[in-house]
């Protein structure tokens, strides 16, 4: 697989797609890799990327495994299988299309290039995701690289098709984020964990991440101002732009909305307190009723507990006060 020529254009111009990966897609590939490792299959790991594309925004939402047909020594995608699977997923997730494919490895190989060419015939400008199973200890980035085919013009066209790297981000839907959190912490059944604590821990962890990143920026700015680090104007401009955007949202409308929201929640809280008091009072009357039972003929409930109805019926009052 180690080819002397790199298939990646280092300074190639990408089409400027904004690319977002969903955790489900990433974990699905992980699952495929693990399954492949443990079942010891001999074929190359390949699969299709399912997602959406709106203008220049691409989201990779899900994936499914693909089959290869071994042709003498050149494996190709099983097109019939791809079509069938595509159709199946279309039925349940009509908004998702096949937008690319994935495989494993550190850098694109000859075979990847060939498969990309074949895939280009099936899907317009496919994205190629390469998963590097060899995750170095202490890695900070996901072991994934995304490519698209370079627009071959002039000299490059002669050199043959090449890959261009694409930047990507990670995006989650709300339910997806919660499910990922759940998977991360394991058990679901534990109901004793305080919801408030759980929610605060999540917030704290996110704020800690934010804080760590701000600290990096701050120490960089300090180092530059002390002449210890080289000033990268691009980074400094970005930091400046970032600061200029604070406060993020100071429109009066937003403030009013937030205050309304706050008041609503506090009203709900008051109602909750009232309900709890009502419940406590009801429990108390119940207990009182056990200690001082009324006669069972009294259909009006215990005197006192029902706003003094017992006074109209002296016999009930007398009966109700009998001590045990």
């Amino acid at each position: 697989m180690d080819e002397p020529v790199s298939h990646v254009l280092d300074n190639g111009v990408s089409s400027g797609l904004t690319l977002n990966l969903h955790p489900l897609a990433i974990l699905n590939i992980s699952d495929h890799v693990t399954r492949d490792r443990l079942t010891g299959s001999k074929t190359k790991i390949t699969g299709a990327l399912l997602g959406t594309q709106a203008n220049r925004q691409v989201a990779v939402v899900n994936t499914f495994e693909l089959a290869l047909v071994a042709d003498v020594d050149e494996a190709t995608f099983d097109q019939d299988f791809l079509e069938r699977r595509k159709e199946q997923f279309k039925q349940v997730f009509p908004t998702l299309d096949v937008i690319g494919w994935y495989s494993v490895g550190a850098t694109p190989s000859d075979e990847d290039l060939r498969l990309q060419e074949q895939f280009s015939g099936l899907v317009e400008t496919p994205i190629f995701l390469q998963f590097n199973t060899d995750i170095p200890a202490g890695a900070k980035d996901l072991p994934l690289t995304l490519y698209e085919s370079a627009l071959s013009e002039g000299k490059d066209a002669e050199a043959g098709a090449k890959f261009v790297k694409l930047d990507y981000g990670v995006e989650t839907g709300e339910a997806e984020r919660i499910a990922v959190d759940g998977a991360q912490r394991g058990g679901m059944g534990a109901r004793d964990e305080s919801q408030v604590v759980g929610s605060l821990v999540t917030q704290r962890n996110a704020i800690r991440m934010l804080y760590e990143r701000i600290e990096v920026l701050s120490s960089y700015v300090h180092a530059v101002s002390e002449g210890k680090a080289k000033a990268d104007h691009n980074i400094l401009r970005q930091i400046s732009a970032l600061l200029a955007s604070l406060p993020t949202m100071d429109a009066a409308v937003f403030k009013a909305e937030l205050e309304d929201e706050y008041a609503d929640v506090q009203i709900a809280d008051t109602f909750n307190s009232l309900t709890k008091q009502l419940n406590a009072l009801s429990d108390y009357t119940d207990r009182h009723h056990v200690v001082f039972p009324t006669s069972s003929q009294d259909d009006y409930g215990p005197p006192g507990a029902r706003g003094g109805k017992g006074f109209d019926r002296p016999e009930a009052l007398a009966g109700g006060r009998r001590r045990r």
Binding site: I26, V33, L142, V170, T172, R177, A183, Q184, G189, A206
Partner: peptide, 29 residues
């Protein structure tokens, strides 16, 4: 039945790395 979630070692590593990327979502939603 008691519900538990399991993850593979590779899942584990990826989830770790994912958190480096998507903690932002916790604050932005």
């Amino acid at each position: 039945l008691k519900v538990e979630i399991y993850k593979t070692r590779l899942d584990e590593q990826l989830l770790d790395l994912l958190w480096n990327k998507y903690w932002v979502a916790t604050l932005s939603q």
